[in-house]
Nucleic acid binder design. Sequence first.
RNA 1: GGCGCGAUAGCUCAGCUGGUUAGAGCGUCGGAUUCAUAAUCCGGAGGUCGAGAGUUCAAGUCUCUCUCGCGCUACCA
Length: 679
Amino acid sequence: MKQFKRHLVTSALPYANGPVHIGHLAGVYIPSDIYVRYLRLRGEDVVSVCGSDEHGVPITIKARAEGVSPQDIVDKYHNIIKSAFEGLGIKFDIYSRTTSPVHYKTASDFFRALYDKGEFTEDVSMQYYDTQAGQFLADRYITGTCPHCRNERAYGDQCEKCGSTLAATDLINPRSAITGSVPEMRETKHWYLPLDRHEAFLKKWILEDHKEWKANVYGQCKSWLDLGLQPRAVSRDLDWGIPVPVEGAEGKVLYVWFDAPIGYISATKELTPEWEKYWKSEETKMVHFIGKDNIVFHCIVFPAMLRAHGGYILPENVPANEFLNLEGDKISTSRNWAVWLHEYLAEFPGKQDVMRYVLCANAPETKDNDFTWKDFQARNNNELVAVLGNFVNRALVLTKKYFDGMTPQPGALTDYDRDTLAEIPALKRSLEENLENYRFREALKDAMGIARLGNKYLADTEPWKVIKEDPARVAAILNVSLQITANLAIAIEPFMPFTAAKILKMIAVENFGWDRLGESALLPAGHAIGEPELLFEKIEDAQVDAQVAKLEAARAANAAAQPQKPAEPQKQSVSFDDFSRMDIRVSTVLAAERVPKTKKLLKLTVDTGIDTRQIVSGIAEFYEPEALVGRQVMVLVNLEPRELKGILSQGMILMGEDAAGKLTLLAPVEKAANGSQVK
RNA sequence: GGCGCGAUAGCUCAGCUGGUUAGAGCGUCGGAUUCAUAAUCCGGAGGUCGAGAGUUCAAGUCUCUCUCGCGCUACCA
């Protein structure tokens, strides 16, 4: 195994258009913080960097919607996120932001370096331009009619109604979201990172040299690499971002996905003048902590950027987690289905470690997981209170009671005492191995194992009985119990730093350091301990019920908002002539089958009264083919024929569509003759 | 439809290159105990390892097919 002199740990940059929630924490920040705290405790040379990702179109849109500047938006969320992290004890060496001057220069220089080396390709394409606003329009800034579902408020990149991914040029009647004017097509030049040039390298680097990566990460990369990599645009026509540092690139900025990972470098630069030894030395082990949505950028795009630039090291591992759900539903910022960190900290003061514990114990390491408040309560009451808090309390209260708070002389230890203490070094080894392989759930179990060991030890030795006839024996028992307590303080520190600090305070010790974990004389005889306090308190039903009620209220608010969604505004008037040009006929479905290799398409054979023809329709998600045969439907018969998936479609089946995009067949209320015209 | 990941006790999860009666924590049931926030300790019950077929002396572990969940991707006149 390769030996490294130092570590560079990055945690995904939170996007500054909203606060951080438990999904972010469980996926990225709790694991990375545990990992980094562990390395620091070991005395390793480690730097942990993070910061807010503050560019990109969604932020400009949010700013416009709220009538403030993009800078206002990112300032607001940057501060909320930064202080929430601090509140939970997520301890970065630096929490920076991509609007910092250092980052502007770093990202700009990085781009320029690739540009000068000829690592980009350039391509001129046609893009919508708003002449009134005097700027090119990002896909999100163009609205129009969705070519698929006819939603008139589709965006240039996506129709939120039918979920289609669109190109801006697909939209019918495009309009600028900024001025409402009709945009015109203009030529625009963009730079592309030709990932295909790096494909062979990436294939070897990941598929051969990093088979140890987590299955989800490795599999996702393999999937991308097998599909073949394409050049990826790294610039955008936008006024919010880092200007492209090339002559003639006015009005263009770096694509947010190009600038964001460079933020890791910038943050390190801001932290230390020695930043290069963390980024450019083969003796540095770089690890990226991210969520599964970021795999492609951290495993494919960013490494390609670093390699194209040259001189930079590549990550040793990218331990991406899956997603955390909440009470059975996907966490959603827009639906307010989330537990927000800053709110949790305010509503559960002093319970940072409870959330840290629960999110680590239930982290989505191998698959999506579910967070429930009931589980939160159970883990607090049955594990933290009952096992960890209880043991520490027992050991300290007994010491106070029998020895006036002084660590007693152990005297002669029995075999059982020694066997018990000997289990700690074994747990330490397992703990270390798990942490170093990013298995944080298992590692946490190991740490808790020390508390379990302590409870068992007390139950077996029964000092409260022995005290009556053999106080000297009790001295040994409590000495051992205190040693276990001290070990516990070390072992849980990466996971629960607040609790570890409380224990240290109670046993009146400044610090131990990781290496002493496993020792059986951490507290010398005669060492006076402090006042015992409870580490955790029970969480009552009412508290978690209130949280569930809060979520239910959010759900109800959403449900209430749903039907109130205004119906689509009436379209522009058309003349009777226009209407009568459409030839709509009652028809009967004669046959129906799925179009192979599609999810939504059905191939229908219909009798229109005029003829028997074939129509391809995107209704497979709502109607089974068998259920359609024999039914009457309305068909626009004189729509220009069009080929779909190689099948000629001669007409269109008319459907009703609700706000959620659900399709309903239209048919005559009573049976009508095929070929009947709609008038 | 293609690709990736996942499916193991009521719940959350371990089970590495196939090898004795499939493990842990929580919950549950029974017992012990009282130093401790009725916390703790011991013991029991509970699984045809998503379904089916195959390879093998031997499969949760390999192969194939299928089902379900999540993600990426294509399609939606």
